[in-house]
Amino acid sequence: MLETSTLPQWLIALLGEKFFNACIIHEDAKKNEKNVFCLDCCEGICPHCLSVHASHRLLQIRRYVYHDVIRLDDAEKLMDCGLVQSYITNGAKVVFLNQRPQTRPSRFSGNTCMICDKGLQEPYIFCSLSCKLQYILGTGGKLSKYVYECVNITFPEPGFDDGQMTPETVLEPVASIRTESGSSGSVGNGGGASCRTLACTATTEIVRKKRSTISASFRPVCGPVLEISNRRKGTPQRSPLY
């Protein structure tokens, strides 16, 4: 468990906030998930809260494999992210805020996280910002060397894909992602397009087989049909007149 007594208040709040839950203030509004963190107020906010926090420093929270992540560029303004595994999604590098629960022992042959044994790629040894902080505190490291003073920093304004309330970085669910990749890999259109292509091919093949089966079941017998169609009509016979 991460010891929070020596961490700055904004960092404690960032790592402890439950993002993508409904905003209590705008509970009845649509698209009210908390996906922005206000560094000045030390709290998560939803898109409807942006007007109140317009002059504050806002950090956009993103979603990757059902866990909270932030852009690596943003994270590096807050702390030293060296040796923390990064991932690429939607063209941007991201890092996990907290460690992910592991339901079974890792069989990964490469590097593993120093805290939670999560499988990692070379040369990374931490799976999340929380794990690195926990390691620093556990080994007696000086936290001030790794966590920066949160002053005079700016972040890109939170973006929305329809110009209103839809976050542009709500990521796709696990089912549409190929695999977890390191900083050299990418997730998104490539894997999704491949899966959709395979699905369409399989569906087309199934439909073709069903149609051929139905055609075979109801195919008319050629012999009698040809015999009937070629038989010439005889001379009509009238009934006798009385």
Rank of each mutant, 00 (worst) to 15 (best):
V187G: 00
N90P: 00
S215E: 15
R232D: 12
H53Q: 06
H26M: 04
T89N: 04
V221F: 09
L137S: 12
A13Q: 13
I24V: 11
N98I: 01
S194L: 14
F126C: 04
Y87P: 02
M114I: 13
T4Y: 07
I88C: 15
V147K: 07
C222F: 08
S86Y: 09
P240A: 09
R231Q: 15
V69G: 07
C127L: 01
P173S: 05
I228W: 05
K30D: 14
E76K: 13
E172P: 01
F160T: 10
G16V: 05
N111K: 14
V147W: 09
H53M: 05
G234D: 13
W10N: 05
Y242G: 08
Y124P: 01
H56F: 12
L14C: 12
Q99P: 05
L72I: 11
V151T: 12
G141T: 08
F126L: 04
S184Q: 14
T4E: 15
R178S: 13
H67S: 14
L198C: 13
T197F: 08
S181A: 10
I136H: 06
R196F: 12
T6V: 15
D74L: 00
S181Y: 04
R219F: 12
S181I: 06
R178V: 09
E180I: 15
V65T: 02
C81Q: 08
Y135F: 15
D161W: 11
K209E: 15
I12A: 07
F160C: 03
C127V: 02
L143A: 00
I177W: 02
E205L: 14
S51N: 03
E122R: 01
L39S: 04
P8A: 03
A193Y: 05
L97D: 09
A92P: 00
D80Y: 08
S109T: 15
E205Y: 10
L137A: 12
R100E: 11
P105C: 01
E43H: 02
F126W: 06
L133F: 04
I177P: 01
Y87C: 11
L120T: 04
N230T: 15
F37K: 08
C38Y: 05
P167E: 03
L241C: 09
E149N: 15
I12P: 00
I45Q: 02
L83T: 01
L7F: 07
I88H: 08
I153T: 14
V65I: 11
P240E: 07
T203G: 13
Q99F: 08
G159R: 05
E157C: 00
Q121L: 09
V84M: 05
Q237V: 11
S183F: 01
R211C: 13
V84H: 04
K210I: 12
P158D: 07
M79G: 03
Y242C: 04
P101R: 03
H56T: 05
I12D: 06
L83W: 09
Q164R: 03
L137Y: 06
H53L: 09
L198R: 11
Q164G: 04
M114L: 14
E43Q: 13
H26I: 06
T201W: 01
E3R: 07
T197H: 05
A193C: 13
L72E: 10
L50T: 02
R238A: 12
G223A: 14
V36W: 02
T169F: 13
G185C: 04
W10F: 07
R178D: 14
A29H: 12
